[in-house]
């Protein structure tokens, strides 16, 4: 896809997320009003008060969930807005984990990040960086068995910035994973890294696989 097409999808999605957010805001106020009215009603005069309150609480919980999802989707939709911007790596990985959590959940694979103590920022293309990280996650998701874990950590080097994505747990085909890293996900990853002018390397020590992305500072 070309940048213009990506931006088009982003723009439309961002617009819709605003509208959906407004729907959630209205739902919160309407259910909030019902809660307010119920709080003024005595238990004796309304025998189903407790059931109503429990249901309203459930509506609020779902609404909170919806708001969180839509806010992350909005953030995602804005990724193509700029071809180069300052990216907070901690925030970026947390965002990716949120977006891919569902893929992990259906395969019973956990995604975890070890946040850097200090705020770490790089200047890069936000959309393609997220895409590169996604392909790494996808690669592990497709090769790990249920119960596996995918870890992220990142650190500063002298000339570049490194993000490590490593996997822990049983793999479907250890031989393939170690010797044939030319899968579709990794070919996609290479193409994406070309756009970012970034590099990746495999570290296969300790019976684990680690993909190290190096981004120029």
């Amino acid at each position: 896809m070309k940048d213009k097409e990506i931006q088009f999808i982003g723009k439309i999605t961002a617009g819709i997320t605003h509208e959906v957010n407004n729907v959630f805001a209205s739902v919160r106020e309407i259910s909030g009003l019902l809660t307010d009215i119920l709080s003024l009603t005595s238990d004796e005069s309304f025998k189903h008060k407790e059931k109503f309150n429990t249901s309203l609480e459930k509506i609020l919980n779902q609404e909170n969930r919806g708001v969180k999802l839509i806010s992350q989707l909005n953030k995602f939709a804005h990724l193509p807005d700029s071809q180069s911007s300052e990216i907070d790596i901690n925030e970026n990985i947390q965002h990716l984990i949120f977006l891919t959590e569902r893929f992990g959940r259906v395969k019973s694979i956990q995604l975890q990040m070890q946040p850097a103590e200090q705020e770490k920022k790089v200047v890069s293309n936000p959309f393609y960086l997220q895409m590169a990280l996604f392909y790494c996650v996808e690669y592990f998701l497709n090769n790990l068995k249920a119960g596996g874990k995918i870890f992220f950590n990142h650190y500063n080097n002298q000339n570049n910035y490194s993000i490590n994505i490593s996997a822990e747990g049983e793999v479907f085909n250890l031989q393939k994973l170690f010797n044939d890293p030319s899968s579709m996900e990794l070919s996609n990853l290479s193409k994406t890294l070309e756009v970012l002018d970034a590099a990746h390397e495999f570290d296969k020590t300790n019976k684990s696989v680690k993909i190290k992305l190096s981004i120029e500072k």
């Binding site: 407004n22 805001a25 209205s26 106020e29 309407i30 909030g32």
Partner: peptide
């Protein structure tokens, strides 16, 4: 401009 949102919020503030 979200009529239902703002009118309900107004009602809650009045309460």
């Amino acid at each position: 401009d979200e009529k239902e949102f703002v009118e309900t919020l107004s009602e809650r503030i009045k309460m």
